[in-house]
Design a protein around this nucleic acid. Structure first.
Lengths: 83, 83
DNA sequence: AAAAAACTAACCATATACGGTTAGTTAAGT
DNA sequence: ACTTAACTAACCGTATATGGTTAGTTTTTT
């Protein structure tokens, strides 16, 4: 399989930084956020550092934790597609 | 690891049906859509049938193919988070 | 400065995703 | 009815994601 592409890495990084920002605004530790997602803090750490590409379902659960709609969350991350 | 949960399956199904609808509206075959994503039609098939959970980056490339922003695409899928 | 909490990072085992092949089914066109 | 295209589905091998452990680093608190 292809190794993780550069664009993918950049994409993941942007998402990770957003999650980190949101989590810190909520004053949650990674463990606290993880427990809301029925996940573990290691995966939150990896996500925030852009090491993994989250599934859409993951993002959905994140949106739940932050009490927002998934589309709002994506909107806030600020990706711009070329049209 | 946990098997794919029911809620996850429902979530994936909804996304798959949306992609199928969009693709058919554009009058593309699965192969045509796949080539736009640098992917193969088997994965499109699996996605549309809700067999796999797409990564966020996948969804981003899908949005590109449909010439929309990722947040717009998610908006159109119509997920409702409990707030 | 010391202790505790929070986080990063590596490693391992396993599950799922993915690419590709093959076979079979459904739909469309002639 | 026949042919072809489109799609579904199973299988296999490999890559990535994930859960968990452990160790080490950074940050916070006292």
């Amino acid at each position: 399989m292809m190794p993780k592409s550069k664009s993918n890495a950049q994409f993941d990084k942007q998402f990770g930084l957003y999650v980190k920002k949101k989590r810190e605004q909520a004053r949650w530790t990674q463990s606290e956020l993880a427990s809301k997602l029925e996940n573990n803090f290691q995966n939150i750490s990896r996500l925030e550092r852009g090491e993994t590409t989250p599934t859409l379902f993951w993002c959905y659960k994140l949106a739940d934790a932050f009490e927002m709609n998934l589309s709002e969350l994506i909107e806030e991350v600020g990706y711009k597609n070329k049209k």
